[in-house]
């Protein structure tokens, strides 16, 4: 049994305007299988379907066609959500709450036992114990990212789904995030994350899926890019360059 399976998934978004209905395809006939205990990267240009795939796994959107199965159970299901920790791109929180309050709220919502004990432990783990009673509006971007990590791990999930966790981080914070992901893998977690940072992806991922315009182009195993530095980037560019909808910028 795989940790996550997307079976022949198609998602068509429908937007109703006053006199017309617009359809756009998020992903089309997408098949993905993420094994237990691996770090799986989703690579693709903007609009390639990475976030759509992640939202389908989390049950935030429903597939037009196909099935999503997580830990053997069909999505959407509360049992599935108990096993997933999610970190969105540039996470937003209730800025008038303190770090301790927001984590307590998420702990209650995840219905875990000993919420306050878990919150205190998590605050120490992410190095925010001294800022526990500060309101989040006073937090820097790096501190908010740590709160994001803390909330995703608070209920000790077996699967972590991170959407662009490296986006907007400085090089040092990016390295810290890469180390965190490797540590979590060592703890036996299954990690699915999307990113544009190919240099980091090739260092930490076991497998990578390249998406383009809503379809799966190919799945690569680590040995396929590990032989030469920059190999993953070369393969990625070769695969997606032809499918980019935007033409060249023509400067005078």
């Amino acid at each position: 049994m795989n940790a996550i399976e997307l079976c022949n998934i198609t998602k068509v978004y429908t937007r109703k305007n006053l006199f017309s209905t617009v359809h756009s395809t998020g992903v089309e006939h997408l098949d993905l299988a993420i094994r237990h205990g691996e770090i799986y990267g989703l690579l693709g240009l903007n609009g390639s379907g990475k976030t759509t795939a992640i939202k389908l796994i989390l049950g935030l959107i429903m597939p037009t066609e196909g099935t999503v199965i997580v830990q053997g159970e069909k999505v959407p299901s509360p049992a599935v959500l108990r096993q997933i920790g999610f970190l969105p791109e540039a996470p937003y929180f209730y800025r008038y709450l303190t770090a301790r309050e927001i984590l307590t709220m998420y702990g209650n919502l995840s219905q875990i036992d000993n919420v306050s004990e878990s919150v205190e432990r998590m605050l120490v783990q992410v190095g925010l114990e001294d800022a526990a009673d500060k309101k989040l509006e006073e937090f820097s971007k790096g501190m908010l990212q740590r709160i994001g990590i803390a909330q995703s791990l608070l209920h000790n999930p077996v699967i972590l789904v991170y959407d662009e966790p490296l986006s907007g981080l400085d090089p040092l914070a990016m390295q810290v995030m890469a180390t965190v992901l490797l540590d979590l893998k060592r703890q036996g977690k299954t990690i699915l994350f999307s990113s544009h940072r190919i240099a980091i992806v090739e260092k930490i991922c076991d497998r990578v899926a390249i998406l383009s315009r809503g379809s799966l182009v190919r799945v690569l195993e680590q040995p396929e890019w590990a032989q030469a530095s920059g190999e993953l980037e070369r393969i990625f560019i070769a695969d997606v360059a032809a499918s980019s909808e935007l033409g060249r910028i023509k400067l005078p």
């Binding site: 989390l58 049950g59 935030l60 509360p78 049992a79 959500l81 108990r82 997933i84 999610f86 969105p88 996470p91 937003y92 929180f93 209730y94 998420y106 919502l109 995840s110 219905q111 909330q151 209920h155």
Partner: peptide
């Protein structure tokens, strides 16, 4: 603001 994501991705009806 997408704060709703972190709530609805938990077992909350």
């Amino acid at each position: 603001s997408k704060t709703i994501y972190l709530i609805l991705t938990r077992p909350v009806s």
